[in-house]
Amino acid sequence: MGLFLQLFTDGVVIGCVYALVALGFVVILSTTGIWHFAHAAVYSAAAYWVYFATVERGMPLVLAALLSLPFAACLGLLIDVVAYRPLRRRNAAPTTVMIVSIAVMTFLENGIAILFGTDNKSLGTVFVAHGYSVGPVVITTWSIITLVATAVLFVTLILFQQRTEMGAAMRAVGNNADMARVVGINVGRIYLVAFALGSALVAPAAVLVSIHSGISPTMGLEVLLTAVAAVIVGGVGSIPGVLLGGLLIGVAGGVGVWQIPSQWQQAIAFAILFLFIIFRPTGFFGGKVKSAAV
């Protein structure tokens, strides 16, 4: 039982990481309708920025982590302006945009590989590994930071979407961009806000994961695909759904380790995704689905 509780707790924490990565992705998806796979590369790039600043330039970790937010935001904006905007101007099909986003991801990940090499690198910070016993379960400082960060960011974002004018404008553009333009919303600007905000939101997850398990250029893709699975399981466009989807996949993978060897963890996550796509493509909180006819 103690082992089960430990695995369950670890699963919840990993699920929070998936949910954090998915949060920025879903802000972009629900506003612009773009399946922004290059998000994976923004995630890797933010982690490499922290590595570069702290290990190679001796910057304090907290400062580097804070600066990773504007860094990720700028990279996201750049991707929208350089790659997606020309496609929008040509009225490209959603699948075309998706292919381009995969290409942008490949471009950035390999750019990182040329600059820093393909090997795994460690940030060399161990202070977060201190564990506290709570009953039969051990929780590390790192896990607590992750849980708190997830709670704060999700609550803030839900409030932002529901209570602010900008949040309302983003939801309006997501629902119907043409109608939003008619009522005087600057759609191009909202897209930029979505990319800046969504990309900045990936930085906390990138920093947390790189502290915990080091960095490599391809660290983004598998995490992002798991996060996309969380988005679909939770229901495309729903922010509480993302959290629920992330936790479900995290816990299923974590508890699965109890019976199934851990190298199959990824396969479990994608098996869940597969079943959802076949039987319930709208997820738990089945809501608006923008770009694809399900």
Binding site: T95, M98, A271, I277
Partner: peptide, 23 residues
């Protein structure tokens, strides 16, 4: 899945299939 969903969702399902097979 291609019978149930199209476009973006099929790409994602195929991503999942690819990663399961790689695993």
């Amino acid at each position: 899945p291609s019978l149930r969903v199209s476009g973006d969702y099929l790409v994602i399902a195929s991503f999942g299939f690819q990663l399961i097979m790689s695993s």
